[in-house]
Every structure is written in structure tokens, then in C-alpha cells.
Design a protein around this nucleic acid. Structure first.
Lengths: 146, 146
DNA sequence: ATTGTTTACTTGACCACCTCAAGTATCTGG
DNA sequence: CCAGATACTTGAGGTGGTCAAGTAAACAAT
């Protein structure tokens, strides 16, 4: 007896498997980011910047204190991967926008997640759809705050 | 048009969904840990300690430098959640073992992952099995190092 | 329009985590 | 016995995170 229990998995087993997958994907992401001189946090922030985004919005997305964002953006800006622009309609807010270089680097990071990418290639269309639907159903419940 | 694309998901969509689920579970874990005065790293280490484990083995499991483990265990030991024991067969190694209090606290952290737990409750037995099997197939490929 | 409240951001202090380089103690193979 | 590997710690230095306090701008309200 051990891992060959192919009956219905317990909730605990599922949670551990989910955690293992999550950890693996995170490491793949962190490795790709490091390959371009970025920490995973920096890469994650860069990945959110499809358009101009106020500092506060970033803090909300990252679920962290606003002062934390200041530091992260400071470091990204020092490398010219990001710019702070004044908001025309509210002089309190600073909109963060990715520079061309920033967009380029995050695109390459995404492309280099080979472990994750390779693993997903082993699923056929039907399996991908099944997995996607199941995870999509799980998502809202997992993102509940309390 | 937008998220209602119920055809075959693209690999990118699957990767983003997986990342979202991973982040949500991680936050659930971190919140439960914080509820007991632990950082997520500390809780993660505690969760590995089913038996005595050398510092080096921990570093390997966490994929980090050995010196990092020294600090983490220092802090856990300061709270009596963990003990360092000499290894009888090799005086260089120190085996880390969880104290009763440590085992107790990590058990409670696991029990309090309510968001994740609640989300998984919405799957029936067949769906759980399907999800488990798909993820189990994905796992080895994702854990490949490079 | 002044006064008061809320909001956005920054700064500084402080801690956790992480790596690297160096040092000590111990083991292991020749 | 000795040379080299291994296990752990220490110290320096950077990143990520919180909290408290401060500044500046927007807003609300009479």
C-alpha cells in the first residue's frame, strides 16, 4: 500500500497534489525570471502591467501593503523596465506602465516556462478541456477571502 | 466575448488558471499559518517534519541554501516547535524533529485551510478522481529541473 | 470657501527570507 | 595519516513584507 491507491483520492491527497503542482509551476516561473535577472515578485508585477496601473491597484492585486509596492517599482524603474506616469485626472495617483524593454522581458519569461509548458503538452484536447473546466469551477471558491 | 470561450483552452489559458489556483491555495495556507503566528515558510518546513530530518535534507526539499535553513530552524526552535538532535551515526549532522507542540500547530494549520477545503467539497467522487489523475500525470513533467 | 475626512503615495524602522563567501568540525577514500 | 568532500554556522548584503507616520491632493458639507 501507498501511492497506488487508485480509488477516490481523499481531500488531503488532492490538496497535497495541488500544492505540489503549484510549487512546481512557481519554481519554473522563478527560474525563468532569474534567467533574466528578475526576482519572481518583480516578474509577477511586470506580468500584471498590460496597461497603465495605479500603485494602489497593484497593491490590491498583490494583496500587500502599498509601501511594499513603492520598493518593488523603485527597483523595476531603476532598470528601466517600468515608468511612473502622473495621472491626468488625479494628481495623487501615479500610473505604472511597462516600458518596451519591460514588455519584452516578461514576454520572454513566459516563453521560457518549459517545465510547465512541456507537461501541459502531454494532455490532448479533451483532457485539457476537462482539466480547465474542473479548475475553473474550483477557482471562485478558492479565492474567497475568509 | 471574453471568458465564455468554452472551446479547447489554449495552453496559456491553462497556465494562467493553474497559476491562479496555486496562488489562491498559497494564500489560504499563509492565512492559516499566520493565524497561529507562523510565516508560510515556517509552516511549510513544519509540514515536512514527519520524522527526524537533517538540516541538509530540508535544504534540498526547499531547494534553497543550507544557511537559509539555519535561520528558519533557529526561529522555530526559539518557539519550541522544533528541536535539533545530534545524529548518532554522524556527528556533523543535526536532525530536526517537530515537538508535540509543533506537530499540533501544523495539524491545526492544515485543518484551517477552509477556502481550499471548501472548494474541493464541490467536486463529487468521479470529478475528484478525474482531477487527481490528470494532475498526477502532470506532476512529474513539471518537477523536472531544467 | 474653510474645515475635516478620506485616499494615494513615500519614508523609515524593523523583521523574515534568501544567497554567497568563509570558517569549523567531522567523515571518507587512498 | 592526510587530502578532499560534507554538514552546519556565521556574517554581509539584498529583496520582500509589515506597520506607523508624514505629505499632498481630492472630496464632502455645511
Amino acid at each position: 500500500m501507498s501511492t497506488t491507491t487508485s480509488g477516490t483520492p481523499t481531500k488531503l491527497q488532492l490538496m497535497e497534489l495541488l500544492a505540489a503542482i503549484g510549487t512546481a509551476q512557481w519554481r519554473d516561473f522563478a527560474a525563468a525570471a532569474a534567467h533574466h535577472g528578475l526576482t519572481s515578485t518583480q516578474a509577477k508585477v511586470l506580468a500584471q502591467l498590460n496597461g497603465p496601473l495605479p500603485m494602489r491597484a497593484l497593491a490590491t492585486l498583490l494583496v500587500c501593503d502599498a509601501s511594499n509596492v513603492t520598493g518593488i517599482i523603485d527597483r523595476l524603474e531603476a532598470r528601466s523596465l517600468v515608468r511612473r506616469e502622473p495621472d491626468p485626472s488625479d494628481r495623487r495617483v501615479k500610473n505604472v506602465v511597462a516600458t518596451d524593454e519591460g514588455r519584452d522581458i516578461i514576454r520572454r519569461v513566459r516563453e521560457e516556462m518549459q517545465a510547465t509548458s512541456g507537461a501541459l503538452d502531454t494532455l490532448d484536447a479533451a483532457e485539457s478541456t476537462t482539466l480547465y473546466d474542473l479548475l475553473a469551477r474550483l477557482r471562485p471558491g478558492m479565492e474567497k477571502s475568509a
